[in-house]
Design a protein around this nucleic acid. Structure first.
Lengths: 156, 156
DNA sequence: GTGATCAGTCAGCAT
DNA sequence: ATGCTGACTGATCAC
């Protein structure tokens, strides 16, 4: 038989009065076993308890169902909480990455400016030297600056 | 009176056979009004229809509830879909920003290397010039390189 | 059996 | 009345 929440079997009769503060479903005590016990007891202990209470199989089955429902309630709550957390986490990381991105972009711009400036000065020196036909030290060839030149052309 | 899904009133009796493909709840026809009509008809038209069918107030009330339930079913589906989309969107944006970040970092490293190289060459020229007591053109002072120096010290 | 997840249902709020 | 959302439930899957 299928059970649609035994504890709320308000069918074929007047609806069970729900708590005014609806959301936390009323805690019950079925056949002398409270929800709290039902939820928290170890399965073995619960079985012992039910045995000691001389419950019928149907009653036991109902309690088991109720136990399952209580657990499910918590699972659902946990899941909702995790989803909420995850969402927040994602948004947080996104913001963080955005900040990082801005910082890096700033640094990038600064470096580009320095590069441009330095290149200018370097070019000035080179021009100065070549105009006077000065022999230059090794490693100071002008054609090593292709990359910078490209960028400076773009940005100036 | 509260109604816990009239259309599933399988209480006090054997459970209603559910479709094998359980999820889409069986479409019903109550008092000669199909779910489809119930869901899609304009309220005015629905009222007309119910009037023309000579339904009792209770029957009307049941149909109204069923209509509400059908709508709610869709609302929930929509909401879940939107949440799913939103989640995907967030993750997508995060990945995108991550890629951007990597690209920028790469560019950053490249520029730093260029700066270091250029600075080296520049310093070589300056040394060369000062060693020979050459007069330099304006704008080529060595002390303008503080920033680069700091970095190059860190990185070399 | 237990935990997680999905779709459906309802209460309650907002429009 | 309608749309939306949080909480709860049962079904179902994975372990």
């Amino acid at each position: 038989m299928r059970l649609r929440d035994v504890t709320r079997s308000n069918c074929c009769g007047s609806p069970r009065e729900r708590n005014q503060s609806l959301d936390p479903p009323t805690s019950l005590s079925l056949f002398g076993v409270s929800d709290d016990v039902l939820y928290s007891y170890d399965l073995k202990d619960l079985n012992k308890l039910m045995y000691s209470l001389n419950l019928s199989n149907d009653q036991k089955w109902i309690l088991k169902s109720r136990r399952r429902t209580l657990k499910n309630r918590d699972y659902a709550a946990n899941q909702r909480h995790r989803q909420w957390e995850k969402k927040g986490g994602l948004e947080f990381e996104k913001d963080q990455e955005y900040d990082e991105l801005e910082l890096l972009q700033e640094e990038n711009d600064k470096m580009l400016n320095e590069l441009i400036l330095l290149n200018k000065k370097y070019q000035a020196l080179m021009r100065f030297a070549t105009e006077r036909n000065l022999s230059l030290p090794p490693g100071t060839e002008a054609d090593l600056l292709s990359l910078e030149k490209q960028r400076t052309v773009e940005h100036m």
